[in-house]
Design a protein around this nucleic acid. Sequence first.
RNA 1: GGCGCGUUGGUCAAUCGGCUAAGACGCCUCCCUUUCACGGAGGAAUGACGGGUUCGACUCCCGUACGUGCUACCA
Length: 509
Amino acid sequence: MSNRVRVRFAPSPTGGLHLGGVRTILYNYLFAHHHGGQFVLRIEDTDQNRYVADAEQYIYDCLEWCGLLPDESPLKGGPYTPYRQSERKPLYYQYAQQLVDAGYAYYAFDTVEELEKMRHDLKNEHNPNPQYDHKTRMQMRNSLSLDPKEVVELLNKQTPHVIRIKMPHNKTVSFTDMIRGEIHFDTSLVDDKVLLKADGMPTYHLAVVVDDHLMQITHAFRGEEWLPSAPVHLLLWEYLGWKESMPQWAHLPLILKPDGNGKLSKRDGDRLGFPVFAMDWKDPKTNETTTGFKEIGFLPQAFVNMLALLGWNDGSGQEIFSLDELVQRFSIDRVHKGGAKFDYEKAKWFNHQYIQHAADELLLPLVKPYFEKAGISADDAYMLQVIGLIKERCTLLPDFVQQGYFFFHTPKEIDLASIQAKWEDRKKQFFESWVEILQSLEQWTHDELEQSFNKTMEAHGLKKGDVLLPLRIMLVGGKYGPGVFVIAEMIGKAETCNRVKAALAQLGN
RNA sequence: GGCGCGUUGGUCAAUCGGCUAAGACGCCUCCCUUUCACGGAGGAAUGACGGGUUCGACUCCCGUACGUGCUACCA
């Protein structure tokens, strides 16, 4: 099968792209590339009410940022064009009609009010969610319950109607899920799902089957939440006469919220303070922006790596994988059945790993915008040095600003209290004379600096423990950062002396 | 309510009948570093429960519990 694998990701363009969505994309991508197949992006915009203008472009942007580009898509085109279901609208009717003709589906004329009434009337303690199914359909207004003449009349009058699948009674439908194995359903318990809506658009159920068939999809991955509607799809493949070419299904485990249980939602991110969307999403209706992993400072490689391990591992214990390695090692039978709680701390650990091991040159263009936003600019050579010096203490990209600010500007505030706690007159005298000595220093290198510092220190009868931390705070502002003499070397003589003097002034006598 | 799916430390997880139950994150202790971080060494912490099957069950089977998903002219 290795050359014929075709998979698809079929999002509905309704908003931000969720972690779970990206993971589904990733598994699609990995599977396709592992088998030398194609990865198709199909836009499932069949719900005109939920359509959101910029959502499709946003999906492309996310795919591009993640480096998980499809082989075929509405943008890129391909042999099965069009890839937007709204543009395929005329296609679906004939298949729905075919099902009606064969007796597998029927017209239903019930209005929204009538449906509501039925659900309301039948609702009780034992049946909280009445269905439109074999038990109720004969009480409704459809081509099964109505007189054939009346049906023709209604149709001729162009009465709004939908086409529903006629779920068989007492039939067991089974299939083998690639992740979960044999799964069985009793069709009596499944409702007569709408296949074609009154506006002529297909529902997901019809569209997914028709398009997966037409686009020659061989393996279909989707979230576990789709499992209950699998019997509808299975039957559709059969009724349409395509059963032999039905894709193999894999229902991916859910990504759960970190606390408690349940599917991770955007709300959880807001509540717990971490991103859920791949990139910033600005809701055009509310104008509200939700922060994405990109904007909060993740590297796409780290993001993808983290996601790959949320529900899959290769059994070796290795956790850091390049995309190529993932492609090589990914296999669907090592995907877990159980949902995984999202752990933001672990996600940050992945990013930290990637930043630590990334080349300074790679980091430069990513970090620069953050520096610029903080009013910091410098030539690349200098910035590169700074990046190399501080990257191991940066977890997210914006951390570079906090960790590197003092390399570019005098700290806005210094932690005077920490110096003052043990401040003595002889320390003050030491710093005063050291600053003087620095003027005549032959070479401005960290070695020279350290030597002169130590010599002066000893001459004043002081120890490192007495003055090293004060020096750091004077130069850096706080108790952090790389070697203090390296910092002094970097910022230069004038700036070093100025910072020490300024601090001495603030400390008073 | 019904149906589906799931269940190894706080979290991610290995194990495909031999377990003294890996590893990672987080947490704690120590070392390195007279800062922070990195790095290193340790530590606490796990098989939901009850029955089978078996010489032997975390692994297989059955039940129970718990969790979760679905139950729309949304995907």
